Amino acid sequence: MSVDVGKKQLRASFAAHRDASQALEEEGASAALLLFYSVECGLKAVLLDQRNLRSTSELQKDLKSHNLRVLAKVLLLPRSLCEQMVDCAGRRGPGERVDFGDLHQAWRYGRALEKKSEERAVAVLRELLSWCQQELRA
């Protein structure tokens, strides 16, 4: 079950999570988690704006998820940016991968990620954040 919110709430959450992420003194899982949620709120706010919708209740189910790739594709973000949203390597072994859309879970629950892979994912989230800021003029 999802919680539906309007454009104002999404914009406010985008800014609040962005600011909280930036305010954390050390980068790490908590900052990355807030960054992820900021981007998710920002992408959904832009989507509502583009479609002239009032609330996430008007979105189809697949656009209510945490799947940033789907949101980026629907929003027609540059292919070069979309292609950077790749799985993140885990520290448990060479075959362990965390889907880009599931990174919020890895950070929320403490799953250890390979450092360089995690840094790349955070860099992509920062690019997405910048895109959202431009689109939302926030």
Rank of each mutant, 00 (worst) to 15 (best):
A106W: 09
S130M: 04
A15H: 00
Q22E: 12
Q133I: 01
L47M: 12
G90A: 10
L33V: 00
A89M: 07
E114I: 05
L103F: 05
R11S: 11
A112Y: 03
V5M: 13
L128E: 09
L53M: 15
K61T: 11
V39K: 05
F14H: 09
R126H: 15
Q134D: 09
V46S: 04
L34W: 07
Q60I: 14
E58R: 08
G95W: 05
R51G: 06
K73W: 02
G110T: 06
G93M: 10
V3Q: 14
V70M: 09
P78C: 10
E58K: 09
N67G: 02
D102W: 07
R137H: 12
R120T: 01
R111N: 03
A121C: 07
L128M: 11
H104L: 08
N52W: 01
C132K: 04
L47Y: 13
A29Q: 08
F100W: 04
K115S: 11
K8S: 13
L24C: 09
V122A: 13
Q9W: 11
E40Q: 09
E26T: 08
Q60M: 13
L53F: 13
D62M: 01
E27K: 13
S2R: 14
Y109N: 08
V124D: 03
R92E: 13
F100A: 07
T56S: 10
Q22T: 13
V74L: 03
D102E: 14
G95S: 11
A89Y: 04
H17Q: 02
L77A: 00
A15M: 01
D102M: 13
E118C: 01
L34D: 00
L71H: 07
L43H: 00
K61N: 12
A32Q: 02
L24R: 10
A12G: 01
A12K: 11
Q22L: 14
L129R: 06
V86M: 13
R54L: 08
S117T: 06
V124S: 06
F36T: 01
